[in-house]
Amino acid sequence: MDGTILLFLLQDGITNGAVYALLGIAIVLIFAVTRVIFIPQGELVAFGALTYALLEAGRLPGTVWLTLAFGALAFAFDLAASLSTGIDARKLTRSAGLTLALPAALLAVTYGVAGAGFGPGVHILLTLALVTPLGPYIYRVAFQPIASASILALLITAVGVHLALVGLGLVFFGAEGVRAPSLSELTLELGPLLVSGQSLVIYAVTLLAIGALWFFFERTLWGKALKATAVNRLGARLVGIRTTFAGALAFGLAALVGALSGILIAPVTTIYYDTGFLIGLKGFVAAIVGALASYPLTAVAALAVGIVEAFSSFVASDLKEVIVFMLIIPVLVWRSLTQPHVEEED
């Protein structure tokens, strides 16, 4: 393995790692706020990638129907809850606006945009707009009703959501794989290394997204509310932060980050309806290194996962996944040894 290959693998690893970092951060965010280990994060990535690639190909993405369906389901839950507690017309109208009117409007816009020759910028915005609402809808339907259940019950629910989303991905996007054109045709020559414009876009967007999340958490009231919920749910409620809102917000942010990651990788690799699971799990490996709590540690670990993956695909491509996922075991053991389990006093 000479220096050029080494550098190339390193660059490849960092590119993938940057995307895993975004996912890992989204996973940590959801866990911190809601205690949900959100296995389906990868599906949101796949949906983002498929939506963007289909829009670029001038086709109507199945996401419009998916969002419409999930919105309707979320409304049904809101309606049922409202019926059992007494109807609050204002709340219900707001819910209808967010869960019924919004997806319908998105459907109309997408009809207008798809195939009308708009550029990547519009397609990116539309993709983000289509996928992001899925987060809060999923939270409303699957997790909000059991928000106080054990982490284990929430995890099993997350696995159920994963199963459902993969299947729905097949229904709404079909079995064929798609790939989007590159976001930038630029190629930079750095010594022996060719750096593609796409990689540069990925680095830039990842850094921007991490910066934006930092700003959100440190400088905005909503961000601080989320942080407060993460630290102490009961305390947050006592000072007037609705944990339901915090949960929906966290899921919305995670879906946004997922869609963004999807757009970033759509030009790099062919995406199928079920590609997201493995990508998401690599974000998980990183999130676990960060103990599902530390954002910076997660980001660094994600880069390490990307690099290990790049090198193992060069050295033993067949065993790539085996190596990447076995990586998690020593990490978990180290975690459990450094953080002795303290029994929760009830």
Partner: peptide, 12 residues
């Protein structure tokens, strides 16, 4: 193969 969807929904 939709059974995954049904299983997922049932599990949730």
């Amino acid at each position: 193969q939709l059974e995954a969807v049904v299983f997922g929904i049932l599990l949730v």
